[in-house]
Design a protein around this nucleic acid. Structure first.
Lengths: 341, 341
DNA sequence: CTGAAAGCGCTTACAG
DNA sequence: CTGAAAGCGCTTACAG
């Protein structure tokens, strides 16, 4: 009780019972221990009077569980991840888990540091949106449950993320349904990210099935944010083409952002003669006029599935249960940039 | 060593030394303990071979310090806070601290829960952007160092945030310098948030000093996001006025967002005959065309100052050191919506 | 230069 | 129905 910290033995002393009694009353371990109402009351009163809160670090040391689940995010500034964290936090809370998050900012070294840190702090499980695979092996060795989100890694970790092929197909179908035929696409120039390739593949085969054509494609640097260079590339392409496509598809939200800023620079209005549609939602999509139609990720679903997978691993504790992959269906956010023509 | 967890005594055994030796070698406590090179080498080798990582929960229990600093944010989806977390994370890392963040989503009850949780987990300090004062008393009672950011609370906690009066003044000065005279303002209708009042006060006195006039003011609901009702209010005001003001000021980023969407609805183009300027930056501000000029918060500065204040409290450990308030200067993001006329 | 021992604050068999 | 004791994995006086 010195220096403000009330401990369990302070409570025991005050209640005139053994410390183990306090512990059991507080944890309602009543299977084998039916304490008298009087004892329970004494303990509760002492707890209240003293304002006792158990030390989770002591408890963790004893039980080996911290009830802490870690989320290692690649980009805390991306609304996808912050919304994800928000939902995870809510869901986990119901199961008595607390979420702690850290941000690698797409830096693999930082990712490893943070993973090591989370492990050292004894998290009971980890959800990571990877930037490369550095540090992931640490988790494997430690036997701490792991689920990877957003970007699948070639190693077979449990994974939940968007069905990217389907997203591409859905875009193709919508394009056809709204009578767009000649399609342009903007995509990041990255071999690493299979996600992107899948989206493109889905789009291509979808387009073919629908009898549409991919009239051009421009690649932009795979940096996270909209940049001058990307901008240039698109503007140049647009200037060079004699006739514009019916619609332009952004493979990622950054691509779509670049598309609209390029169009603005050229004083082209989208949503009338020129359709725009993107994969992945973003804040500005609904703010910009005309607002942008996109297929997005069902973030809450992803959060739920991730937690479910993690919880299963925690409960089964045998690492023997095989890794699962959950692909979730994209959802349409139909706005103004792709009207029926 | 059973079940994958390598402990310090495993290392000691393998190195053939006492566990205390391992501890001291690892922590380089060499003031009084000059171990022989041979011993040090033995220990390090054992550590490597075994892949030992110290248990921070055990260490915390022993030392009473977790080296964990908590950030309780009111809105993880707000880029201001996520950027803040990003910078904090970086700065703290250099001092051996790890940041854990949680999100109250502007829910006071959740705020209290999260504060209790962070405290139970033994964080060494807390940075909170409050939604009301619920739970803050818990921190005070616990003697854990605290610094409040963003919104000052009437209780005298250490605080770092924007100099809001100055922000208002800076806007007034810029308006004058760019030859705008008749000014409209949009502001949230909230008595609670003194921040807002300060901004308005700064603007008003600034405007007076500069010989400009506040020609009208519209209040919108104090909800966090842009909404239909706010939109209506502004549109109606605009329709009713015979002649528009020279420029409209958004007191918060949400206000500014509402201003531009209202203007869009009325097919009014800002940045030409009608200036727009806001307090507080936001993502769309640079995406929308014409882009929006704002005075924003120097987020990194705020992160640095917050950490400095926290660290001081941690080091001095005497709660006797008085609460400090740090007000940081706003910074201009000059874009296209407020050209010189 | 190195070790033996106590203790941080809990939980949980084991006993009665 | 209740208690005494061991132990989770560390650090740190204390001793030598």
């Amino acid at each position: 009780m010195k220096n403000g910290k009330v401990t369990m033995s302070d409570v025991a002393k005050r209640a005139g019972v053994d410390i183990s009694t306090v512990s059991r009353v507080l944890n309602s371990s009543f299977e084998k221990h039916k304490y008298s109402d009087k004892t329970v009351a004494k303990v509760r009163k002492a707890v209240d009077k003293l304002g006792y809160h158990p030390s989770l670090v002591a408890r963790s040391l004893r039980t080996g569980k911290t009830m802490l689940l870690g989320m290692v995010m690649s980009d805390i500034g991306n609304p996808f991840f912050s919304e994800m964290a928000f939902h995870l936090d809510g869901i986990m809370g119901e199961y008595g888990y607390r979420l702690i998050v850290c941000n690698t900012n797409e830096d693999p070294e930082r990712q490893e540091e943070h993973i090591v840190g989370m492990l050292a702090h004894g998290v009971d499980g980890l959800i990571v949106s990877p930037s490369g695979k550095r540090g992931l092996d640490r988790i494997e060795n430690s036997d701490v449950p792991l689920v990877v989100i957003d970007r699948p890694l070639s190693n077979g970790f449990s994974f939940v993320g968007l069905d990217n092929v389907l997203a591409g197909k859905m875009v193709a179908q919508k394009l056809k349904a709204h009578n767009y035929r000649r399609i342009g696409v903007v995509m990041p120039d990255s071999k690493e990210d299979l996600t992107l390739q899948e989206r493109l593949d889905g789009l291509k085969t979808g387009l073919k099935d629908e009898g549409c054509i991919l009239s051009w494609k421009v690649c932009i640097p795979p940096t996270a944010v909209a940049g001058e260079e990307s901008h240039r590339a698109i503007v140049n392409k647009l200037k060079k083409e004699l006739d514009y496509p019916d619609a332009i598809v952004g493979i990622t939200n950054v691509c779509t952002l670049n598309i609209i800023s390029s169009l603005e620079e050229l004083d082209l209005v989208w949503g009338e003669s020129l359709g725009v549609v993107g994969i992945d939602d973003f804040t500005a999509a609904s703010i910009v006029r005309p607002s942008i139609t996109v297929v997005g990720q069902p973030i809450k679903r992803i959060a739920e599935e991730s937690f479910a997978l993690l919880l299963k691993q925690i409960k089964e504790d045998k690492k023997k249960l095989k890794k699962e992959t959950v692909l979730v269906e994209p959802v349409w956010h139909c706005r103004k940039s792709l009207p029926v023509r």
